[in-house]
Design a binder for these strands. Sequence first.
DNA 1: AAAAGTGCCTGACGGC
DNA 2: TGCCGTCAGGCACTTT
Length: 283
Amino acid sequence: MPELPEVETVRRGLTPAMEGVVIKQADVNRPDLRWPFPVDMAARLTGKRVERLRRRSKYILMDLDSGETLLVHLGMSGRMLVSGDPLGQFVHRHPAPEKHDHVVFHMANNARITFNDPRRFGAMDLMETASADAHKLLAVLGPEPLGNDFHESHLIAAFKNKNSPVKSVLLDQRIVSGLGNIYVCEALFRAKIHPTRKAGKISGARVAGLVPIVREVLAEAIEAGGSSLRDFRQADGELGYFQHSFDAYGREGDPCKRSGCTGQIRRIVQSGRSSFYCTQCQR
DNA sequence: AAAAGTGCCTGACGGC
DNA sequence: TGCCGTCAGGCACTTT
């Protein structure tokens, strides 16, 4: 999916078109994504003003003036296309509808936001804003990696006695929420940690070192997303996964980018997901 | 063929 | 021996 940086980029891209704006109409073109849509979703969105767009982990949260919050998850292939907004930051003309346009928001400022998701691993739900944190999908999430609750002692405690590979521990959203397959590979590359290494056997110092590295990797990707967002404004307004230049992910067989390292990137499969790592510098 | 995610199921293990 | 909780690993969902 879009991992945390991509979701944050989508949130930022949606903000000028949606925040403070009334949803004039919501088209709901099918009954479900990964799960059924909430009861009467279209009616509960229609005529409501979007007060604020927030992000929690990989979820976008839209607070409405009705006291409800719309939760949106992009799954693996979800995208949001912004068109026709009066500020001229995206494309002015509304594109022709496409296959897999599951939900369309028609905004009072003439912006249109089209949620397109071929694989339908995405999700939407409505909840009371006041108790949003208690939502089933949000309550289980660990700290935000860019927030104050993600710190060295937290990660050291979470790694302790863990018998699983560090790769899967960092993917576990209960431990830290927002990392996905790409940025775990990138963080482990930067930390020089082999993805199969058992979490519980990594020294405290190395675990502690992961904290600033995870933050850097995500912050840099958000920055790159910001640039791609500016490009989107001139291009087609499509918000979702953006291609960033990676050190390890997707570089199977290529030389390690670390200066002085003679290793090359290898791909292995761990619990069904590809892991990319340098044969030389990651131990 | 492989893909950016994650809830849920199952079996193993351990404490009481 | 049995019950229950936790943990680890794997599956399923779907389309391109």
